[in-house]
């Protein structure tokens, strides 16, 4: 779902600098609705996997400490122009999100 994830990968030498911006509420489950006084149910991304041409290069478990609309920035060694970098994320309610980008030449 392209709307929920923006990705960019730029190459410096053989290192790809990958930036990903996700749109997600990241509700902790600890906040109360000011009108109803009830807890807002937890809804957050808890698993993030990045792949380079299908091979996993990053596997992270996330928790409620990550802010709303998370931003993740990481580097992959040995990347070439044209390589495909994908990011798959899932939240505690089981919704899947994914984004893909091609490494741009510098």
């Amino acid at each position: 779902m392209a709307d929920e994830m923006k990705m960019r990968a730029t190459l410096q030498g053989d290192v790809a600098d990958v930036k990903v911006l996700m749109t997600h509420v990241m509700e902790t489950g600890l906040r109360k609705d000011s009108k109803t006084e009830k807890f807002i149910p937890a809804h957050f991304i808890d698993h993030v996997v990045a792949t380079l041409n299908g091979k996993t290069v990053l596997d992270a478990q996330w928790g409620i400490a990550v802010a709303k609309n998370p931003f993740i920035n990481f580097k992959i060694k040995g990347a070439k122009p044209g390589d495909k970098i994908a990011l798959n994320a899932s939240d505690n309610l089981g919704t899947q999100y994914s984004g893909e980008t091609t490494v741009a030449a510098k």
């Binding site: 709307d3 923006k6 911006l21």
Partner: peptide, 12 residues
């Protein structure tokens, strides 16, 4: 640039 300007999220 949405990676620089968080307000770009408001456009969407």
């Amino acid at each position: 640039d949405p990676f620089l300007n968080e307000a770009m999220a408001a456009v969407e």
